[in-house]
Design a protein around this nucleic acid. Sequence first.
DNA 1: CATGAATGAGCCTTCATTCAT
DNA 2: TATGAATGAAGGCTCATTCAT
Lengths: 210, 210, 210, 210
Amino acid sequence: MIDTAHIPSRRGRPRKIAKPEDLLAAAFRVFSEKGFSAARLDDVAREAGVSKAALYLYFKSKQAIFEALVRSAVVPNVERLEGHVAGWQGSAGDLLRMLVQAIARVVVESELSAFPKLIIAEASNFPDLARLYRTAVVERVLGLLAQIIRRGIDAGEFRPTDPHLAARLVIAPLLFSAIWKTCFARHDPTPFDPAPLLSLHVDTLLRGLA
Amino acid sequence: MIDTAHIPSRRGRPRKIAKPEDLLAAAFRVFSEKGFSAARLDDVAREAGVSKAALYLYFKSKQAIFEALVRSAVVPNVERLEGHVAGWQGSAGDLLRMLVQAIARVVVESELSAFPKLIIAEASNFPDLARLYRTAVVERVLGLLAQIIRRGIDAGEFRPTDPHLAARLVIAPLLFSAIWKTCFARHDPTPFDPAPLLSLHVDTLLRGLA
Amino acid sequence: MIDTAHIPSRRGRPRKIAKPEDLLAAAFRVFSEKGFSAARLDDVAREAGVSKAALYLYFKSKQAIFEALVRSAVVPNVERLEGHVAGWQGSAGDLLRMLVQAIARVVVESELSAFPKLIIAEASNFPDLARLYRTAVVERVLGLLAQIIRRGIDAGEFRPTDPHLAARLVIAPLLFSAIWKTCFARHDPTPFDPAPLLSLHVDTLLRGLA
Amino acid sequence: MIDTAHIPSRRGRPRKIAKPEDLLAAAFRVFSEKGFSAARLDDVAREAGVSKAALYLYFKSKQAIFEALVRSAVVPNVERLEGHVAGWQGSAGDLLRMLVQAIARVVVESELSAFPKLIIAEASNFPDLARLYRTAVVERVLGLLAQIIRRGIDAGEFRPTDPHLAARLVIAPLLFSAIWKTCFARHDPTPFDPAPLLSLHVDTLLRGLA
DNA sequence: CATGAATGAGCCTTCATTCAT
DNA sequence: TATGAATGAAGGCTCATTCAT
């Protein structure tokens, strides 16, 4: 235990230099654990190692923290995915398989798996953020997938289907995995491994689309 | 999944005798709109047309209401599904198709689509309920599906796969639809129709499993 | 000392039936002692013998309490004065003398002497209330006085002057007395008696206006 | 009453070397606008063009700033008035008229009219300052006036009255004007001109005292 | 001397919960 | 059974104050 009893508790003594990213990271941990409403800024501050008041140096309200959090997570990851696709030359099937694995790595296997849960939980309380997430993340990813599927159809690799619907079929098991992980796998003795499910998913889907 | 979901949202003169099911129905509407923490018992009471204090005649706390809500939704609907399966004599494929449609009718197309959202949102705050929901609903449905798939494999109708994984693939687009509906379709001009997606899903999945 | 230790401190036990007027009376005491900003609702609640939360059963915010307080004090006293004037038949001078005494009784000698102080202190923070007080109290009283003075001029009792300015001269020593009382007389050993000052005031003013 | 009141409200580039008088001038503007409690040191600092921490280089607390402000306004202006009186040789009536005009110029027509409001508002929160202001300003000015009035009585120019009470009558319309200006004239389209009122005041008072 | 960055303490406000009727 | 009225216990946000640079 660290003995800090000898430090006089004087008001206003600065202890730590806070960075907004660190604050958002702490907020993400607390918000995704508790949800927006049940999360306390006390917890966010403690998690970030700063005082509650310090949060207000960078964000003007609890809601502003949440909004900044969603916005900060929106763009970069999608752009990473689009980068994957741009340079690829293989078949549509191979590209789909690779994308599913890439998304799994980013979303399902990292801590970001809590993000969909957070959006799902708070969509009706923050419709603007839901719309932002939908247009800037979900529909962009779905568009990317639809484009690949259309390419596969045009090349005769896939049978004719609505590419936008098929794109949703690609995504669904990924969403399932992320949710399973955050909902059920937390208190589970055996660790949750999405790989076999996703492997079967791609195999089955590609057969089904062929 | 709530037996009383067919009760319309009354807004008129409060009935003198409140029934716990009415209270749960009101609680469901409010909790699924706001989440557990942001939901106020004031709203639940007003929605139910009773006083706030009346809630405490039947439930000892806000958390108890939530728990009763989840428990009430657990058993009946699964049993209904199991009834569907028991009497069926057709092929595994037909049975899967019918089950997907049945689940869609119950979960996706009714107001109960908010239920998965609620569980997802509150799983980490109520791990016991999450476990209950998992064992009493999710795994029972998955087990049912797995059983059918195994039957299909044994009959040579499907290629050999892990039936439990395949069952998840069956469920995933249903979950996707329910979530899409509660998250994004709320403020959407064009109404959300899960039928085409699920139709493509079953077609593709059965081809993929064949 | 009253022994309440044996009473279990259970949440929500109602203790007292609060009346909005009592709450406003308590608020008046605290606000006029401390000013709006320095007043704490804790103090208002304790002064009223209720919990802080009880204040919100009747008023939606601290500011709403303050506004209700000002509004509640505005009309009745002015109407009382106007009643005094309506039935009077004597000379303008006698009427002025009587009115000064009446105002002194109401404003200076009662606890209401703190009211002008409160308005003065908060006028720039609550311009709407200042305007209300000006139109509904100050200008009405000034109008009443101006009317009497004009009557005196018309009757040859007073020399010709601007009645609205003269009305202000009537009021000024009353305001002085009220302010002196709240500012300086509080911590004064010898009690403050406005009567001699106001007596001299009326004598001198009537001579000056003659 | 503040020696530095002639310093215009700078809004430009902050001077490197801050002077306590500048800080007090800024504090006066903010305190007289908001009152002590509602005034924020952020605003004082911004108004003074320095950082909030810089205030603590010269004053040990917010309260110390307020106290210094009041003290700084106390002595000089009264001495100026006493100088006016000392060298005067005319009649008591002329001297009173001149003094009323002098006070009006200093207090009512300048920005210092906010000072009485500030004292009135904070007297009960800062009784020591109220006492200081009373003895060092108010009673000295009243004493000056009483002395003149006694001179007038002794010379047969005024009828016999209590000079200390009569002095209050001299002051009252000045106080009225200052308060009217700060409370009601702020949001008034027509500018407030105290001259006619004070002119009538002196005329009437001198007649009344004669 | 001056300030940007940080904080402890406190206040307004909300809300689940309880009691008298 | 049912409720209107009340409250204790937070939580969000502000602000005077302090320290490192």
